[in-house]
């Protein structure tokens, strides 16, 4: 007599099980079967998210040595360190899908994977650090909060950790700006100038309009994404306008107006040509960002090599 055999599930059965998990709004976990397109799409999304966190350290990092006080320096250092952590959480999530962390970094440096267009703009004054915290991290929060319910478990859990830390990022930025707004006319002008430069790029962070976003539908059907680009952008504008008013700055959009009927803000047309330029490598700082990332990898290679040699020597 032979041992009872367990029938291997067919591809269709596996697909049905996956679909049922998604339909029930349960999470997909690393060792579950998943469609190849789901896995690939997630690796790409998570890797690019991770790259954005890592590259995102640079614009504010430029001001670490020029922070105006020890307090501001400690705060900025903690904020930038958090972004490194966000990158690590995300690479770790990508690895649960079979990606290799060093390989992803190589792809970023070789220009084969992208990062958020926002980090290709320069930080010209210290007010930019405040505006990044307020607007850029604010937009990040709008994007990331729904991702805490992403259908892929490790991604959702990474987002929960990230979101817990983002609130500090936004508040430290806003507080910095409030302090400057209470200062001299020159300081207030610096804040307004920074807002003028960052407002439009921050709106672009939500991606192209829904009718020009071909992958969104599949992403939403799989529960990877929970809201459309335009929906999140509108939410962000509605949140930001009263914050700008409280701060005493003007958002650089003459068409910005409250729609009494809906209670939401109408805003002007976004310059998608600029977005396309920046995302395809022609932004003000694209080259600088990648050059520095490459240097970080290559110039510090001796540290990782030394640590490996030490570990090898002590492994018994």
């Amino acid at each position: 007599m032979s041992a009872p055999t367990v029938a291997r599930p067919t591809e269709d059965e596996l697909q049905a099980q996956f679909d049922a998990t998604i339909a029930a709004d349960h999470r997909i976990e690393p060792r579950d079967w998943m469609p190849e397109a789901y896995r690939k799409g997630l690796v790409r999304q998570i890797a690019q998210h991770a790259h954005s966190e890592i590259i995102g350290m640079q614009p504010e990092g430029d001001w670490l040595l020029a922070a105006p006080s020890l307090r501001r320096k400690a705060v900025l250092l903690a904020k930038v360190q958090d972004e490194a952590g966000h990158g690590m959480y995300l690479y770790s999530a990508a690895e649960t899908l079979g990606a290799d962390r060093a390989d992803l970094t190589d792809k970023l440096i070789e220009g084969r994977q992208k990062y958020s267009s926002i980090f290709n703009y320069p930080t010209l004054t210290y007010a930019d650090c405040g505006v990044i915290g307020w607007l850029v991290d604010g937009a990040a929060i709008c994007n990331q909060v729904p991702l805490c319910r992403s259908s892929y478990g490790p991604y959702a859990r990474a987002m929960i950790r990230v979101c817990k830390e983002e609130s500090f990022h936004q508040r430290q930025g806003y507080e910095l700006l409030m302090t400057m707004m209470r200062g001299t006319a020159e300081q207030r002008a610096m804040v307004q100038d920074a807002v003028d430069r960052w407002w439009w790029p921050s709106l672009m962070m939500f991606g192209p309009p829904d009718d020009d976003s071909p992958n969104s539908a599949q992403s939403m059907a799989w529960g990877v994404k929970r809201h459309s680009n335009d929906e999140l952008r509108q939410r962000y504008v509605d949140m930001s306008v009263p914050q700008a008013e409280a701060l005493g700055v003007t958002l650089p959009d003459p068409e910005l107006a409250l729609d009494e009927a809906t209670g939401r803000y109408r805003f002007g047309a976004i310059d998608w040509a600029e977005f396309k330029q920046v995302i395809s490598g022609n932004g003000p700082c694209n080259e600088e960002r990648i050059t520095r990332r490459r240097a970080a990898r290559d110039d510090n290679a001796w540290v990782t090599e030394a640590a490996t040699a030490y570990a090898d020597k002590h492994a018994s």
Binding site: G41, R44, Q45, I46, Q48, H49, A50, H51, S52, E53, G56, H86, L90, K114, Y115, S116, S117, I118, F119, V136, A139, A140, I141, N143, Q144, L147, M159, V162, E166, M204, M205, F206, G207, P208, D212, S213, P214, N215, S216, S219, K225, N229, L232, R233, W272, F275, K276, I279, S280
Partner: peptide, 16 residues
């Protein structure tokens, strides 16, 4: 192409 970008990572729009 730029048409294949979408808002993904928390930090914003990245190509898909």
């Amino acid at each position: 192409t730029a048409a294949e970008t979408t808002a993904e990572g928390g930090h914003g729009a990245v190509p898909t």
